[in-house]
Nucleic acid binder design. Structure first.
Length: 453
RNA sequence: GUGGGCGUAGCUCAGCUGGUAGAGCGCCUGGUUGUGGUCCAGGAGGUCGCGGGUUCAAGCCCCGUCGUUCACCCCA
């Protein structure tokens, strides 16, 4: 029975082995950086009660609901009311409340998992994708310096990845809300929503929307647009905001915080990751209360933000205690899948094997296995040829897979000759002592330095 | 969820005003009976995404659907 070849499912990307090797490498690098900074690993279940998922934001349309094919007729509601999580922050907030008694605060954790959203897919935007989050949560209160910390850690993590340079853009809700209130905006949130359109629609359109939808007069709109135009790689944005002549306590507090984030990130900001203040950033989610982050890859700005987050003072609350937090979330799939498909990042082979042990004939397969086992014992990924074909074919088998070495058996399993098929060089070797150069042990993941015109 | 572009061999693509499919690269075999890459000769491989419709005739026109992509929406 054949039903034809299966076809892709929209929004559920699957990777080929060489691509998956890249993704695993990236996840390993992220993990290493997060753990270097003392973030503890957490994995939450894939599902949450719908009431948990729907408590924040209006993402209800995106939630995949889970249901048994044949629900118990006696208890029709037994399986109802759970859905797949659409991010890692909401499940984490629930986790913190549930295990508050067993966690030590401030609690810092990283979490790298799949999430699901029922959206219309396009490049960099999927229905099943991987996110890597770090968050720090306090009980009752959380010192501001943790805002600086999560920015530093994520900047450091991204700097180590084989991806194009990124810009980590930082702003502060207090700053812009204080400013908008200071200019006399009647609806601060409306101003924020409209200003967020900058970059998508012409500035003149935004100016008109500020009048129509946010109720600003010309002068107020101009001030807000001038604020949104401010960017700086250091604390110099403060002077430029002051030049606009708007004052409020909240604005001052926000500027001080933003300046502190930039100063704190000065040592990690560089070629690979540029940390900068961008007073246009607002973020759609309404639970952010202070610092906010967005990140774009240079030359790939059309993908949108690949890493964002911020400060949330009241995401988790059990009615007695509030747990404020600050976190940042890297879209591993959004960042990586387009890079893989365009060839900007690649692994130099689709298999882990560093050595192919050639096979003379089937009776000697045991000897070939013994050679491979001696190599593996010293951490050298090795496989034995599938069939005793002509050596030319066995070499080609290795070549097609990018396996750099072919081992030709000698008179006993301890000795043989090993050929570097890239150079053609072939030397006698002992299975207990020979090792390839460190660089050949695993597939090499590399980013091409191709620049977008 | 709304609207648009695209879908031909493993890959990149060609295919005229409708007349029943092609190239390059890759792959396989042999020349080279345990040493690949070059070269030469030969070869395999396509339900033209899928399903309907119009027509004597559909890769080409129409409808639907799936996939992909762009904009909106939203966001990683």
């Amino acid at each position: 029975m054949t039903a034809g070849r299966p076809t892709a499912m929209s929004g559920f990307p699957e990777l080929l082995p060489a691509e998956r090797l890249v993704e695993q490498h990236v996840v390993d690098l992220l993990r290493r950086t997060f753990e270097l900074h003392g973030f503890a690993p957490v994995e939450t279940r894939a599902v949450e009660p719908l009431e948990t998922l729907l408590s924040k934001g209006e993402t209800s349309k995106e939630v995949y609901v889970l249901r048994r094919l044949q629900a118990d007729p006696a208890r029709p509601d037994a399986d109802a009311g759970i859905g797949l999580h659409f991010d890692l922050t909401v499940p984490f907030a629930r986790y913190v409340l549930e295990f508050a008694g067993k966690l030590d605060f401030p609690f810092r954790r990283y979490q790298i998992q799949k999430v699901w959203r029922g959206e219309r897919p396009q490049e960099g935007r999927y229905r099943e994708f991987t996110q890597a989050d770090i968050d720090i949560v306090g009980r009752g209160e959380l010192a501001f310096h943790h805002d600086v910390e999560v920015a530093r850690v994520m900047a450091e993590a991204m700097a180590a990845l084989p991806v194009p340079p990124v810009r980590l853009q930082v702003n502060n809700r207090k700053l812009i809300q204080g400013f908008y209130a200071g200019v006399g905006a009647p609806d601060v949130d409306a101003v924020m929503r409209v200003v967020d359109k900058l970059g998508k629609v012409p500035e003149e359109t935004v100016r008109r929307m500020l009048a129509d939808e946010a109720g600003l007069d010309d002068e107020q709109a101009s001030l807000c647009l001038r604020l949104a135009g401010i960017r700086s790689a250091d604390a110099s944005f403060v002077d430029r905001v002051r030049e606009l002549g708007v004052t409020s306590d909240l604005l001052e507090e926000g500027m001080a915080e933003l300046a502190a984030v930039l100063e704190g990130c000065a040592t990690v900001s560089g070629e690979r990751v540029r940390v900068e203040a961008d007073l246009r950033i607002a973020r759609g989610l309404d639970y952010y209360t202070g610092t906010v982050f967005e990140t774009v890859m240079e030359g790939l700005e059309h993908l949108g933000s690949i890493c964002s987050g911020g400060r949330y003072d009241a995401l988790a609350d059990d009615g007695r205690t509030t747990y404020p937090g600050v976190g940042i979330s890297l879209g591993v799939s959004r960042m990586l899948v387009p890079l893989l498909h365009s060839g900007r990042v690649r692994a130099d082979r689709p298999v882990p094997s560093a050595v192919l042990v050639a096979l003379v004939d089937e009776p000697s397969r045991g000897d070939a296995d013994a050679v491979a086992q001696r190599l593996r014992a010293r951490g050298i990924p090795s496989e034995v040829a599938a069939a005793p074909q002509r050596f030319g074919k066995q070499i080609r088998y290795a070549e097609r897979r990018g396996i750099p070495y072919v081992w030709f058996p000698g008179p006993d399993p301890a000795t043989g000759e090993v050929k570097d098929i890239r150079s053609g060089e072939q030397v006698p070797a002992r299975a207990d002592t020979w090792s390839p150069p460190e660089a050949d042990l695993r597939p090499t993941i590399s980013a091409t330095e191709e620049r977008v015109p």
